[in-house]
Simulated scan of single mutants.
Amino acid sequence: MCESSIKNLIELDPKNNSAYVLLSNVYAKLGRWEDVRAVRKLMEEMGVKKTPGCSIVELDGQLHEFFVGDEAHPERREIYRMLDEIMERLKSVGYVVKTEEVLLDLDEEGKEMALAVHSEKIAVAFSFVKTKPGTTVRIIKNLRICGDCHEAMNLISKVYGREIVVRDCSRFHHFRDGVCSCNGFW
């Protein structure tokens, strides 16, 4: 039922990337990796591109844009050093990566690595490098925050004593002392 409905959406609007991504995600959740590859191949053939995850931070009147796995920023070494420190500290207090969030055909380690470099985590690391402890971090994200990043932001706010505000495509998330204003409904 769901699969045929999504295929109908693609047929009605073959340039709409959302329907392809939705169908690919359904197949991935079902472990149908050949079908995932077929959908991605069809997207390529049709010239349809998936919208990449992007997070923006404004500091001192300047916008800083980060994409998943972004290494383009001139301060990437410091950012990734901070990101590694953040992830290690979270793991030391019980953070467990939600690898089920990754809808790619990767092993567990690959899934952990993919989640570790989501744009909002990079944006937080950048903010920590560039601001004083206690400064509120504000991030604008073009897509919905994933469950793993949501949990990570909860813990980061508690462990580092920082307020983190993430505006994703659905709502504002105000993380403070390990709790989000959405009460886990995102």
Rank of each mutant, 00 (worst) to 15 (best):
K29N: 13
K29E: 14
L30C: 07
G31K: 01
R32K: 07
R32W: 01
E34I: 09
E34N: 12
D35V: 03
D35F: 00
V36S: 08
R37A: 15
R37K: 15
A38S: 15
A38N: 15
A38C: 05
A38M: 12
A38H: 12
A38D: 15
V39S: 10
V39W: 13
V39T: 14
V39P: 09
V39F: 13
V39K: 11
R40Y: 15
R40E: 15
R40I: 11
K41I: 08
K41V: 08
M43N: 03
M43W: 04
E44R: 04
E45S: 05
E45K: 02
E45F: 01
M46W: 03
G47D: 09
G47E: 08
V48F: 05
V48W: 02
K49V: 07
K49P: 00
K50E: 15
T51I: 15
T51L: 15
T51Q: 15
P52W: 13
G53P: 09
G53N: 15
G53C: 14
C54M: 09
C54K: 12
S55V: 10
S55Y: 13
I56M: 12
I56N: 11
I56C: 06
V57H: 05
V57F: 05
V57A: 05
E58I: 08
E58R: 06
L59D: 05
L59Q: 06
L59N: 06
D60R: 06
D60F: 02
G61I: 08
G61T: 12
Q62K: 15
Q62Y: 10
Q62G: 00
L63F: 09
E65N: 07
E65I: 13
E65F: 06
E65S: 10
F66R: 06
F66A: 05
F66K: 09
F67V: 03
F67H: 02
F67D: 00
F67W: 03
V68A: 14
V68C: 11
E71S: 07
E71R: 13
E71G: 10
A72S: 15
A72F: 07
H73R: 07
H73M: 07
H73P: 06
H73T: 08
E75A: 11
E75F: 09
E75T: 07
R76W: 06
R77W: 10
R77L: 14
R77H: 14
E78V: 07
E78F: 11
E78C: 06
E78L: 14
R81G: 03
L83P: 09
L83F: 12
D84T: 02
E85D: 13
I86S: 01
I86H: 00
M87P: 02
M87N: 07
E88F: 08
R89K: 12
